[in-house]
Structures are given as structure tokens and as C-alpha cells.
Design a protein around this nucleic acid. Structure first.
Length: 602
RNA sequence: GCCGAUGUAGCUCAGUGGUAGAGCAGCUGUUUCGUAAACAGCAGGUCGCGGGUUCGAUUCCCUUCAUCGGCUCCA
């Protein structure tokens, strides 16, 4: 690949511009909301934000007012000047005396905390927005900041405040929730408009909208939030994906298993989920007279029971149990997002029980399967994340030495497979480190998709064993893996990636037959049977009494890959009029030629 | 769960302190058509649910539920 030296976003003018726009917004906020406490205001991927602690509630309708004041402040052509504090004490003095603009030391609350967090030896810098008014009076807006910034507020011309959100101080839910104001800024008006236009376009690709329009899935308030109902077309899509993966897994030595949706609480006491996962579980099925049952949030304990049901020899390993297992997790109400984040979903789950010596190879095998899956689905834009333990959290189970060994195994497998990855502390499962595939949705949000997790802990808890060559019992290692992650999330994401125009092999309806007039319906119906039974294609016959133009329009909006139009000429000559979703009218061709074309694309 | 916003017909959206409209979809009839919306008529809504203010609430207020954006958390 050509090595074009590309400027990092962090080093770009745009990045500085957005950072300065955040400061400009802070200045406007300070004027409009006396007593407001500024926290942090960095540039981000598509703009910037500033977190503030406001004495009055800031509402969406206030954004226009803030924006208007920013425009005025921009035009004042304030010089943006970097200042460095010689030491911590001087910095503190500046914060208290200059950044507060006479509003009292309490407005500097967060800035003082930020100052404490600056490591020793690092330069403490401030950025000042300065101007002298007509009377010769000097004005400033000073903010503790690493920078860098643009030279004048005049440069900040093309910006827009986007939305409001609550955001916890330092990203910790235990801390106070601040008000975050998001904005975006660009160098030119055209770029800003293009960005806003792209956002509009992205909304049209939203899987929740397309899911309804294309008849894939729905939600019902009588069923409950986050519990999708799969409609016929969505169910076909699921089946298609399941069939594909089952075939791949069969080639790779997986064995199918099937397990129930609920289990006795004893199973989860044994697995440790009851402690680590309780707040994510649906309410327990409790009854004084009977045993308590739990709706399963995970499949692993069931597969473990199957493994543990008999003596295992080292000759049996690796054992690979696969199940499309439907699980239910009580996600917090604010985090349910269509089928990307549902409360009931089906994992393409499997658990591999391996010896220590097999771990790397098996892990490599899983990574290879994932590559195959991503390739088949046409997903190219993903990142691989190695999730490791957060050293500050106590939510994890298991011995440290196992965590270290498992993490090393994952990294080694990635290196062997040539997978580019990044390490992310705190993103491990509670029972072990993992490799996750991260993909962005239409709105640019990251989603964790496929996952591979090494687990030394559950075999320990369940006292799993196999008899080794030495005739002695040994503990197997488990690998949890789900190449899709879940059918729901993967289908939601694919819907957005393809804007609903699924590739031929996945499309719920592959071919629509459109008879032109009633007299062509009988022939069209025969053709439908042939497409379905002889050529094994998913076909829909549109025999409504509508004009051809109407049928074409409706079919196109349903994103069906091929339309086959049947009129007098076709019946006489044994042809079909073909229209492709992407290429439009392809004219008449023989049925054989059309089938050949379709087959070649599958 | 938390912060902000939204909730009117199946969908997209108007609208008002005096109990509601449009387009598309649906139904009926006419049209039988060659590559992105034929024509006409009809029907369809406890204005998310509950409470309050008021002579009167879909409209104002409160509560609650759901949804959307974000935070936190996750496949």
C-alpha cells in the first residue's frame, strides 16, 4: 500500500479550530449563565463538546441563543494567546483570580481538579481570548488548557451546536452529572453543510427505520422494550446467516448443542454470574415452594454442564459446542437501541474446551473463522480490540496469573494471524480477557460485534477435567466465541452498512416477479414456482392490480436485487425483462441467461 | 439508571383552550398498462396512559410509560 504521509487529525488545523470553538462556546456560556462551572471541552471526532455544571438547566431551545452569542464573540477578533504558568501555585492563582472573571472561586471547582491531575513536570498552560474594546479596556477569557488553538476567534466561523447530553464528571457514574453541549465546526461553510447533510442521510440508513420499512422486525409495547419480533423477511435473513455459519462451523469441527432458556439458580451460583451479573438479569422466577429459576443471560454454563457430564480424554479435545442461543439481559432503559442493543437476542455462541497446548491454535482457528465471516458479510471497516482487566476494578473473578496467561495467548494469536489490534484496559469480560471486533453504525457509534474470550475461570469454578496422556486429571481452558456477536446486532449493523440493499445471497427477497397485466399472472405464478423449487431462489410474485411503474417503484424501495418483468413478448419468446436494483433496466434476456447471471452472483 | 428532547390515523407530518386535518398506505369500483407513484370514492384517531387546573383540555401543569440523542454499561 502506498505510504502517503497523512496528517493526524490531532495535528490538524481542523482539530485546533474545533478546540477553539469549544473555548468560544465556554466564553459564551460564561456570559449567558453567570455562576456556570466549566469542566472540560475537547475536540472530538466530528466536532467538539464542553462539559459544564450550570446553575440553571440548559435546554435545547437555548442552543440558538448560545450560538448567536458565539457568533458575536467570534467577530470581535479576539487574539488567542498561550500562557504558561511557571509552577503549580502560579497556575492555581491564575485559575482562581483570572479564569473566574470575578465570579468567585467556586466556579473554578473543576479546573482546580484538572490542575491536580496534571502530572508533575508537565507544562501547565492556559489559553486566553483577549481583546481591547473601543474605550481601550482590556477583556480576556482565560482557560486552563493544553491547547493548541487557532490564532483568533475570527477564524471560528462555520459551526453549529448540535445537542445536549448529561455526562458524568470524569466519565464515572458515581460522580456528578454535568451538562455536555455538543457542537461541530468546519473550515468552510460547504464542509459544514456537507456534514449536516451527511447526518441527514445517515438517519435514513438507521436500521430501526429500514427494519420497519423493509419488514424485517418490529417492537410492540405489549411485548416490552428491547424485545424484537422478527417478521417473515427478517426471519429469512436470520436463517440465511445461521445456515451460512452452521456450514462453516461444521467444516471446522464444531458440534451443535441445544439448551433451555431457563436454569436453576444453582447453575448461576456455580458459574459466579449471580454475583457478577445480577443487575443485568431479568427478575428471578422465585416462589417459596419451588426452586428459583433464572432466564439465561449467557449460554456458557449450559455448555459446561454438557462437557462435565462425562469423563473426557485428552484425545477428545478440543471439544467445540455451538449453539444459536437466545439470551435475555436486562439492559438499562436508556441503553436499548433497536436491535443493536436489545434485551433479548441470539448469540452465535460456541464454547471450545481445549488443552493448554491447543489454546493458541484453537484461538487462531477462531480468528480465521471470524475473518471468513467478515469477508462473506462484506464488512471491511472494523477494528480489533483486546480487552484487558481494569486494574482499579474489583468486578473480576479468577487468579491473576491466569489473566496474564490468557491475555498473552490472545495477543500472540493476533500477532500470528497478522491482525492489527489495540489493547483496551477495562474492556475484559468479568471472567477473562477477550478479543472484540468493533464496527461503526450509520451514526458513527462503535458497536462490539464478534468476540473471542479466553476463560481459565469457569473451568476452575466447575472443576472441569480431562484425563491427560499421563493418566492424570488436567483442567481444560475454555474459549467463548461468537463471530457475529449476535444475530440482532449483526443484522442491525448490516442493514445500516448496506442501507437495506443486502447482497443477493442475504436479501430476504432475491427476485420479484412483476407481471404486467392480469393475463400474465398465471405464467408468472409458474415462473415463481420454478425460481423457488428448481433454482432455490427466494422469490416474490407481485400480482397486485397495479401499473408496472408502481410495482417497479415499490419493489425498488423494498431493495429487491432483481425484478423480472413478464409481458406478452416474454411469454411468446420465453424471455424475461430484467431490472437490477443497482443497474436499472437490463432489457429482455432468456430465462437461462438470467439464471446464470443470478447464480454467478450468489 | 442519569441528563436533554419527542409522543396527533399503519407511515410521514399539519393544527387548535370550544373533543382534529393532509399525503402515502388500506378498502371498494373503474383502468390491463413494457421499466420509479393510473383515476374516483370510502373508511380510519379514547391526539401515548393516568391525574390536575378550567364551564370546557388533544392544547396549560404534574406523574407515568415508550421512543430519540448522549453519559454510564454491553453482544
Amino acid at each position: 500500500m502506498a505510504a502517503i504521509a497523512q496528517e493526524r487529525y490531532e495535528d490538524s488545523y481542523l482539530y485546533r479550530l474545533r478546540h477553539s470553538a469549544a473555548h468560544l462556546m465556554a466564553q459564551a456560556l460564561t456570559e449567558l449563565y453567570p455562576g456556570i462551572k466549566l469542566a472540560i471541552g475537547p475536540p472530538i471526532e466530528n466536532g467538539f463538546y464542553y462539559d459544564v455544571d450550570s446553575p440553571v438547566v440548559i435546554r435545547e431551545e437555548d442552543l440558538a441563543k448560545i450560538e448567536a452569542r458565539m457568533k458575536e464573540l467570534s467577530k470581535l477578533d479576539q487574539r488567542i494567546v498561550r500562557m504558561e504558568a511557571p509552577d503549580r501555585e502560579a497556575a492555581k492563582k491564575l485559575i482562581l483570580e483570572e479564569t473566574t472573571l470575578g465570579q468567585g472561586p467556586e466556579v473554578a471547582e473543576y479546573k482546580l481538579l484538572l490542575l491536580e491531575a496534571v502530572p508533575d513536570g508537565e507544562t501547565i498552560s492556559f489559553y486566553d481570548q483577549q481583546r481591547t474594546d473601543r474605550e481601550g479596556k482590556f477583556h480576556r477569557f482565560l482557560d486552563l488548557c493544553r491547547g493548541p488553538h487557532v490564532d483568533s476567534t475570527k477564524e471560528i466561523k462555520h459551526f453549529k451546536l448540535m445537542n445536549l447530553a448529561g455526562a458524568y464528571w470524569r466519565g464515572d457514574a458515581k460522580n456528578k452529572q454535568l451538562t455536555r453541549i455538543y457542537g461541530t465546526a468546519f473550515e468552510t461553510k460547504e464542509e459544514l453543510e456537507t456534514h449536516l447533510h451527511n447526518l441527514e442521510e445517515a438517519r435514513k440508513r438507521d436500521h430501526r427505520i429500514l427494519g420497519r420499512e423493509l419488514g424485517l422486525f418490529m417492537f410492540s409495547p405489549r411485548v416490552g422494550p428491547g424485545l424484537p419480533l422478527w417478521l417473515p423477511k427478517g426471519a429469512v435473513l436470520r436463517d440465511t446467516m445461521v445456515t451460512f455459519l452452521k456450514e462453516e462451523q461444521l467444516k471446522r469441527g464444531y458440534e451443535p448443542v441445544v439448551t433451555p432458556s431457563i436454569a436453576s439458580i444453582k447453575l448461576y451460583e456455580k458459574s459466579g454470574h449471580i454475583i457478577a451479573y445480577r443487575d443485568k438479569m431479568f427478575p428471578f422466577m422465585e416462589d417459596e415452594e419451588r426452586e428459583t429459576y433464572i432466564l439465561k443471560p449467557m449460554n456458557c454454563p449450559f455448555h459446561i454442564e454438557i462437557y462435565a457430564s462425562q469423563m473426557r480424554s485428552y484425545r477428545d479435545l478440543p471439544v467445540r459446542y455451538a449453539e444459536f442461543g437466545t439470551v435475555h439481559r436486562y439492559e438499562q432503559s436508556g441503553e436499548v437501541t433497536g436491535i443493536l442493543r436489545a434485551r433479548g437476542f441470539t448469540q452465535d455462541d460456541a464454547h471450545l474446551f481445549v488443552t493448554k497446548d491447543q489454546l493458541i491454535d484453537e484461538f487462531i482457528g477462531v480468528v480465521d473463522l471470524m475473518k471468513t465471516v467478515l469477508d462473506k458479510l462484506g464488512l471491511k471497516d472494523f477494528r480489533a480490540r483486546v480487552g484487558t482487566k481494569d486494574p482499579l476494578s474489583d468486578k473480576y473473578v479468577g487468579h491473576d496469573e491466569n489473566w496474564v496467561a490468557a491475555t498473552e495467548a490472545i495477543e500472540k494469536a493476533c500477532q500470528t494471524m497478522g491482525v492489527d489490534y489495540f489493547v483496551s484496559p477495562g474492556d475484559a469480560a468479568f471472567y477473562g480477557p477477550k478479543l472484540d471486533l468493533i464496527i461503526k453504525d450509520a451514526l458513527g457509534r462503535d458497536w462490539q460485534m464478534g468476540t473471542v474470550q479466553v476463560d481459565y475461570n469457569l473451568p476452575e469454578r466447575f472443576e472441569l477435567e480431562y484425563i491427560g496422556e499421563d493418566s492424570k486429571p488436567h483442567r481444560p481452558i475454555m474459549i467463548h466465541r461468537a463471530p457475529f456477536g449476535s444475530l440482532e446486532r449483526m443484522i442491525g449493523l448490516l442493514t445500516e452498512q448496506y442501507a437495506g440493499a443486502f447482497p443477493l445471497w442475504l436479501a430476504p427477497v432475491q427476485i420479484a416477479i412483476l407481471p404486467i397485466a392480469d393475463r400474465h399472472a398465471e405464467y408468472a405464478a409458474e415462473l415463481k414456482v420454478r425460481f423457488r423449487d428448481e433454482f432455490k431462489l427466494r422469490v416474490h410474485l407481485d400480482d397486485r392490480r397495479e401499473t408496472l411503474g408502481k410495482k417497479i417503484r415499490d419493489t425498488q424501495m423494498q431493495k429487491v436485487p432483481y425484478m423480472v418483468i413478464i409481458g406478452d413478448r416474454d411469454i411468446e419468446q420465453g424471455t424475461v425483462g430484467v431490472r437490477s436494483r443497482e443497474e436499472g433496466d437490463l432489457g429482455a434476456m432468456s430465462l437461462d441467461a438470467f439464471i446464470e447471471r443470478v447464480k454467478s452472483e450468489l
